[in-house]
Simulated scan of single mutants.
Amino acid sequence: MRSILFTILVGLVGAAALHILIILAVPYFTGNDAYTRIADLGEPLRFYPLPNTAASRGGLINDDPGMRVGACAFSVGEAPVRLYAPAGVPFWSVGVFDSSANEVFSMNDRTAVAGALDVVVATPIQLNAIRKALPAALAQSILVEMPVDDGYAVLRTFVPTATMDEAARAFLGNAGCEAIDESTIE
């Protein structure tokens, strides 16, 4: 009987210690999520290329030498956001994530119209407004519903040879992540 009570007491003390440790560790992990790190790269609504070195802003790096990567933080709370980039690289892919790092949407150049990136990310209400009065400029755009206001996009392009590196960097440099003026939609 005494050993059972001792086991229960040790279990309760261990559980209490674990809970205290978790509570004390939460501030350490707060602000280290992907969304916060991407938002810390600079102004929102701009693709920032991620360097291949460990000494980058926000601690984000591109650790694949065969890829070039750009990231853009955005909010659809005030207006929809359009992600775009021209065709012209052997391969690209984009992933749209909410602020909790849940993937909302992804696609690549093989599923895009004419190989170009053209995606509109918006809240359900904003999407309804866009669909009711679809402007000609958004006729070929892929419409993506964002479940929360804040999110980020990660745009990747493949660099099969060193001679393609300049084209990949130009592709990321010409990529856009910008708010859509809602007055042009209504």
Rank of each mutant, 00 (worst) to 15 (best):
V120C: 10
Q140F: 02
S99N: 13
R82P: 07
S100T: 12
R131G: 03
V119Y: 02
V104K: 00
A122Y: 01
L127V: 12
S93K: 11
V96Q: 02
L127Y: 09
V148F: 05
M146K: 06
Y84A: 14
Y84N: 11
Q140E: 15
L138K: 06
V148D: 03
Q126N: 09
S141Y: 03
V104M: 03
E145G: 07
I130W: 07
P124K: 06
T123K: 12
F105L: 08
A114V: 09
S93Q: 15
L138E: 10
A101I: 01
L138Y: 09
L127G: 10
E78Q: 12
S99R: 12
I125S: 11
V121H: 01
I125Q: 14
L134R: 15
S100C: 05
A79R: 13
P86C: 03
Y84E: 13
A139E: 14
V104C: 01
G95Y: 03
P80C: 10
F97Y: 15
K132T: 14
S75V: 03
F105I: 04
A114F: 07
V119H: 03
T111G: 08
R82K: 15
Q126G: 13
M107K: 04
V94T: 07
P80F: 02
A79Y: 04
L127P: 09
V94M: 09
S100L: 13
G95E: 10
V104T: 05
G88T: 10
V119L: 11
A87D: 15
E103T: 11
L83C: 06
P135Q: 08
A114M: 10
L117G: 05
A129K: 10
A137R: 14
V76F: 05
Q126F: 00
L127C: 10
D109L: 01
S99G: 11
G115R: 07
S141M: 03
I130G: 02
E145L: 05
E78L: 10
A129M: 11
S99A: 15
A129P: 00
N128G: 15
S93W: 05
A137W: 00
T123R: 14
S93D: 13
M146F: 02
Q140S: 14
V94I: 15
S93C: 01
G95M: 02
D149A: 15
I125T: 14
T123G: 01
A87P: 10
G115W: 03
L127F: 07
V119G: 02
V144Q: 00
G88V: 14
F91S: 08
A116M: 04
P90S: 13
P86S: 11
N108S: 14
E145Q: 11
A85L: 06
G77W: 01
A116R: 14
G115H: 05
G95F: 01
V113M: 05
G77C: 05
R131Y: 02
R131H: 08
A129T: 11
V104I: 15
R131L: 15
V144G: 01
F105G: 04
L143P: 09
S75R: 04
V113C: 02
S106I: 00
V120T: 12
S75G: 10
F97E: 00
N102E: 12
A139G: 01
D118V: 05
F91T: 02
K132S: 14
V119T: 12
P90W: 04
S106K: 06
S93H: 08
I130N: 08
P147N: 09
